[in-house]
């Protein structure tokens, strides 16, 4: 084989070994090319009806979906890390079991039930969806935070205190950096769960990738379900790859 051909082949190999890039391109293609896939859907679902969801563009749906996930995950991260820090302090250690139990109960509530309960209080639209998602995502972040902070070697903590780290400096410079991989793993689980769960936000009237799915289900139009489902799945996979990359980055540091 000629050397430049071999080089091109190995470059192609390197590219192929970065599935994140492929998947992201696939996601972008799915968002923008879905409206042109009418022929495909007509072949799959022989039907005279309109087979491409058109109440909103898929870009709008995806962005609204991402916004729901981002806001709820941010709230879950703040609550999870904050409670995790509290539960691992000297003064809060006795509350650790209570905090864990509360978060576990939060996760046993089906998100749909939380949504139903939140609607009377928060009205229709994004707010009840955000509340349900945040409640649901807080547990993995909390678990990751507690595991990570508990895993900080006692000797490092003792030495830091002994040479004059203030409690905040100990937390910020020693404990959180050492716990970061575990917190990130918890956050990853939370976000991925939320991307899937955010589809039910549409049942509270919020715009999301669940909108075509719900409409497709109620109108017995499987094409809509497939359209929303494909993009939501690709989004989840891409974000997961992103977290993979982040944790690699953290390891190198």
């Amino acid at each position: 084989m000629r050397p430049d051909a071999a080089a091109a082949l190995s470059a192609a190999g390197r590219f192929a070994r970065r599935p994140g890039l492929w998947l992201f391109l696939l996601l972008v293609a799915a968002i923008f090319l879905m409206p042109s896939a009418g022929i495909l859907f007509h072949a799959l679902f022989p039907d005279d009806r309109h087979l491409i969801y058109s109440r909103a563009t898929f870009l709008e749906l995806t962005l609204a979906h991402c916004q729901l996930v981002a806001l709820s995950s941010l709230a879950a991260a703040a609550a999870g890390i904050g409670l995790g820090v509290f539960a691992t302090r000297e003064s809060g250690r006795e509350f650790a079991p209570v905090v864990r139990a509360m978060a576990a109960i939060g996760q046993t509530f089906p998100p749909v039930a939380v949504l139903a309960l939140a609607i009377p209080a928060l009205g229709y639209g994004a707010p009840p969806a955000l509340a349900a998602l945040a409640l649901y995502a807080a547990l993995p972040v909390l678990e990751g935070s507690i595991t990570g902070l508990d895993g900080v070697p006692a000797s490092a903590r003792d030495a830091a205190r002994g040479i004059g780290f203030s409690p905040f400096e100990l937390l910020w410079r020693i404990e959180l950096p050492l716990a970061a991989p575990f917190i990130l793993a918890g956050l990853r689980t939370a976000v991925i769960i939320n991307i899937g769960t955010a589809t039910i936000a549409s049942s509270a009237g919020a715009l999301s990738l669940g909108s075509p799915i719900l409409e497709g289900l109620s109108a017995a139009n499987p094409a809509y379900v497939v359209e929303g489902g494909i993009i939501a799945a690709l989004l989840a996979i891409c974000v997961d790859r992103g977290f993979d990359w982040l944790s690699e980055l953290l390891k190198q540091k």
Partner: peptide, 20 residues
């Protein structure tokens, strides 16, 4: 106490170097 400890060296058996 924090300022006090910064003026005193402290060495323990388990060393306690910061692993990161």
């Amino acid at each position: 106490p924090v300022r006090l400890r910064r003026g005193i060296g402290y060495v323990i058996q388990s060393v306690g170097l910061f692993p990161h």
